[in-house]
Design a protein around this nucleic acid. Structure first.
Lengths: 351, 351
DNA sequence: AATCGAGCCTGAATCGATTCAGAAATGTTT
DNA sequence: AAACATTTCTGAATCGATTCAGGCTCGATT
């Protein structure tokens, strides 16, 4: 009644447990005949390897932990997906943990992963956890930071250059004729936010045109905050509206787009151009498809996992920081004035 | 250099390994003094329980597997989150697997979970996997179906009544004065799609008003398919447009909304009302916030996990089908004509 | 004083796969 | 035919936590 063990398989196949183990792990060193007999016995008994015993003796695990900052944000969903895709190729499963920016949960998951002796940890850190990660490393569990640089370069990381991204976004706005730009984002404790703003400022300063930039601060990178910021902007006299908005991420941008409908008329892009950051899948699904700075999220996940596996194979590897460049994705939300729709607004209003 | 084991702790605390184990698992049976000394030793050595050894001997696991159908759909993200929240309360972690509607991957993850001897499995099944789940059960690993009923009632399940949901959605459309309704959805192999349509038909038949319903078929429940369906509808002569659309899920509805902009003018809700299903977080974030049939996704996940834990505690429990009722969430996309915006379109176009 | 029970502790046996030193079988060389 | 190399196989030892039969101590009971 109890599930078959390797010993049962050995008995049935008429070989020793050592041979069965070899068939499972290095079939090349076993005679073809034995392989056959063992495999048949496995079939007949419905034998399944006991991973706990394997892990205990061999010390290797087939699990990788992934601690994610904000499970709500589709961006992280895409990153996990990329990592998972790569992992499944290696027969590795992902232990998933969502911290929701909560230090206690972050710690809880790292404890859990340590008990589980995972093969490695991917993490988009919230608090400063380098000491915790050092301890894991001392136990032979490497870690790769996702979407954040390692402060002191003691861990590998995979991320995107937010400064360059911010610059590219605003350069695009300027090139398409916009001159009064608002940066919507916050809180500024988040590194990515300040980096994107810094990049935006660089673009403005480098421009030969007379471009102004203002900052509209938000308290979180959410749709609701975006909508609130949009309402604040619209409440000003019309002449003081910006003619373009760069939002620190797509969630904010979607909220802004929602706020920028006046009397059934969509201000984007004719009156106000709008660009976000991340290029989550809902960016293209927006009423006015959203221009955005694409982060290669699946690639980030895949790369992070690959680096992690390399580091488990060779713990002496020097940590390396992998930085991707974001890619400008132009959609209708930053179309030049008047070109956005086949018919002109005036005509459309004739219904 | 190797991590401390329970033996090291015992030695340092001057007790036997049995006592250390007791401190860890039934502290009540150990004298207060021993508890203290052991805990100190644990601190000093930085001892962490080896889960593999524990699992091997005791047979209990602290991991639950969750196989998800479509990782892209935020609905499943929310369900996982709910399950994870509940799991973390019990010190349980979630092994996450995304099948992307691929039979091979589905099987791979179930194999992996079996090797890992997870405590139980949550699954939104794609293919017919009851035999596979039976086998897991024979090994002491229970399973709970998520978002699907168990065909033969041999497994517990947690889902939402799609027929009722479809009926409620269309009743709402009729009550707000719509008479020519289009159901957009497909493929019809997906049980939820046919159920929602069936519910819609019931609403139409029960109505005292002269209501018509037509079906616009899609090949997938995605934003792109929604947009395509919208384009097809708009390509007809204006007089043949429906005055309301019920989309089989929110992704389709968002695609439809995107297609329903003509010349910068949003047809929703004045010309065409629009309602979706699931109430994913982006439904409220849409340019015109989307009415939808809310599935209590986090509650679904939480409930499924709770049932799973109950079944691990008592394997003799009779499987039970838990069905939630969806909730109508009314937003602007189904507002009555002319009431949708403070200013009238004509006035707005006067800019 | 002998017996008993409660409370607490000990340490060997155990879970199942892997590993590895050594044995057995087979082939090759001198 | 002996010596040696190669290939293949064997089975006891091992990983670390848990379990449990039995031991010890000390106060209570007879």
């Amino acid at each position: 009644m109890t599930p078959a063990s390797i010993r049962d398989v050995a008995q049935r196949a008429g070989v020793s447990v050592g041979t069965v183990s070899n068939v499972l792990n290095r079939p090349g060193e076993v005679s073809a005949e034995s392989v056959q007999r063992v495999q048949r016995a496995i079939e007949e008994l419905g034998y399944v390897r006991n991973d706990a015993a394997r892990k205990l003796r061999a010390g290797t695990s087939t699990t990788v932990g992934f601690v994610v900052l904000d499970g709500q944000n589709p961006f992280f969903g895409d990153v996990v997906r990329g990592a998972e895709d790569e992992a499944s190729k290696h027969g590795i499963a992902i232990l998933y943990g969502n911290t929701d920016e909560d230090v206690a949960r972050e710690r809880m998951y790292l404890d859990l992963f340590e008990e589980q002796q995972v093969r490695g940890v991917l993490i988009s850190p919230y608090s400063d956890i380098n000491p915790r990660l050092e301890r894991l490393r001392a136990r032979g569990i490497p870690a790769v930071l996702v979407d954040r640089l390692s402060g002191d370069g003691r861990f590998s990381s995979v991320s995107v250059d937010s400064v360059v991204g911010g610059r590219m976004a605003v350069e695009h706005l300027i090139e398409t004729g916009r001159r009064r730009i608002a940066f919507v984002g916050g809180p500024f404790e988040i590194r990515q936010v300040t980096d994107r703003l810094a990049g935006a400022r660089v673009a403005v300063e480098n421009s030969t045109e007379p471009v102004e930039i203002e900052v509209v601060a938000t308290t979180a990178l959410t749709v609701a905050e975006g909508a609130a910021a949009g309402a604040r902007i619209l409440s000003r006299p019309r002449r003081e509206w910006p003619d373009a908005i760069f939002a620190a991420n797509d969630l904010l941008a979607l909220g802004l787009q929602q706020a920028l409908i006046v009397g059934g008329r969509m201000l984007v892009p004719d009156d106000i151009a709008l660009i976000g950051f991340d290029d989550i899948s809902f960016a293209s699904a927006a009423a006015v498809p959203l221009s955005s700075m694409r982060q290669p999220s699946a690639v980030i996940g895949r790369t992070a996992l690959r680096i992690l596996l390399e580091e488990t194979a060779d713990p002496e590897l020097i940590p390396r920081q992998t930085v991707f460049l974001p890619e400008l994705v132009v959609r209708r939300s930053t179309a030049a004035r008047g070109s956005s729709s086949p018919a002109k607004p005036a005509a459309a209003s004739g219904f």
